Computed example of a mutant assay.
Amino acid sequence: MKRKIDLTTIGGLLLCLGGIFAGYLMEGGSLSALLAVSPLLIIFGGTIGVVTITMSVSGLKSMPKLFRNIFTDVTYDFQALITNLCDWTKVSRKDGIVALGNVAETIEDPFVKRGIEYILDGSDYDTIKELLEKEIEAMMERHSAGAKPFEQAGAFAPTMGIIGTVLGLVVILGGLGSAGIEELGHGIATAFLATFMGVASANLIFLPFNEKLKGKSAKEVLYKEIAMQGVLGIQSGVNPKTLRKKLVAYLPESEKDVEANSGKEGK
């Protein structure tokens, strides 16, 4: 597994922001009109504050890691995983379970390594399955908890935008008698800017980040699910060819095509 910069996240952000602001400028808008501090404080300060209320201290400490996961991508080599699992079951069937001891020492993935070690410990099929499933479930719960703040921020931000707009209108109406036309227009624009920022931050940042984390979680779950089925196949002594067919069935169509091509090249 290799971690690299996630160009889709960065490219998507640049594309959506660039499109919105380009359209705004084409309509005669000015970027300086968007640089208002008060709406920023209300939207982001309010949203972050409300989300913080719902989180634990450990959750707050994990936020830098979540942002790293959003802007970087882990490449999972499904073909290599399936090939290794099939090779290991050949070793197990030919030389016995004990021969997996040397294999376990070379495995870098902690999840896969634990699965092989469970086999070496003499655990039965049901026990290994339960242990690995519990680990996957715990990981899914952890990932869900990590993505939750962005989902909540996406729900709260538009409301904060409305609050900012209402507060701005209250200030404008309070000074309506002494305000000039230019000052009044500027105040109304700033007030509605809060609504824009609230809706934009929710739909351009918070909710997409939430979906991004869910997608990355699903990919890791699939990887571990394949690894678990492979370990269980090794434990039960499944024929390597049968095991490969079973594991390939879990792959999305794009990965199946790669698997088919690699299989042809290997013949």
Rank of each mutant, 00 (worst) to 15 (best):
G180I: 03
E182M: 11
N210G: 12
K2D: 14
E27Q: 13
G187R: 04
F209W: 02
E130D: 14
N102E: 15
T52V: 13
V37L: 13
V112M: 15
K113S: 06
I234T: 02
I82V: 08
L66V: 13
R114H: 12
E137C: 10
F150H: 04
I70H: 03
R244H: 09
W88T: 05
K61M: 11
L184S: 05
K113A: 07
G45L: 06
A191W: 02
T52L: 11
G28L: 02
N239R: 05
T75D: 15
P252F: 07
A155T: 12
L176N: 07
T9Y: 06
E255F: 10
T75P: 09
S201A: 11
T9H: 06
A202K: 04
F196I: 04
I163G: 05
E117M: 11
E220Y: 02
G263M: 15
N102W: 14
Y76I: 09
M140I: 12
S254K: 14
A189W: 06
I163F: 07
N239S: 05
G233M: 05
G154S: 04
M63D: 05
L13R: 04
G12P: 06
M1I: 10
A260G: 06
I136V: 09
F67Y: 10
N102F: 14
K264D: 13
I107D: 03
K224L: 05
S123M: 14
R142W: 00
M228I: 04
K219S: 10
P158G: 06
G45Y: 05
S217N: 10
T75C: 14
D95S: 15
L31P: 03
F209L: 10
L81R: 08
K245C: 09
I48R: 02
C16V: 15
I163L: 10
A138S: 09
T165Y: 04
L193F: 07
G12V: 08
V238F: 11
L85K: 00
C16F: 15
L213D: 00
V37P: 01
V170N: 08
T195W: 05
D257F: 15
L167T: 08
L176F: 11
L247S: 00
G45I: 01
G237N: 02
E183D: 13
Q235S: 10
A227D: 04
I10T: 03
L204G: 11
G164C: 03
E27L: 10
Y24W: 01
T83A: 15
D121I: 05
S58V: 11
A194G: 03
L81C: 11
L132N: 01
A218D: 09
E183P: 07
Y24K: 02
L213P: 02
L35V: 09
L25N: 11
R142A: 08
T47L: 09
I128N: 01
I43V: 09
A218E: 07
N210M: 12
K224T: 00
K148S: 08
F196T: 00
A260V: 10
L184W: 07
M140G: 09
L15Y: 07
E27Y: 08
E182H: 12
L120W: 03
F111R: 02
Y125W: 12
I5R: 11
A33W: 12
G187K: 07
A227G: 07
L13C: 07
D95R: 13
T242F: 15
G154C: 04
S92L: 09
D73K: 14
V74Q: 14
M140A: 14
E220R: 00
E130H: 12
P240R: 01
P240M: 04
K4I: 11
M160Q: 02
L204H: 01
G185M: 08
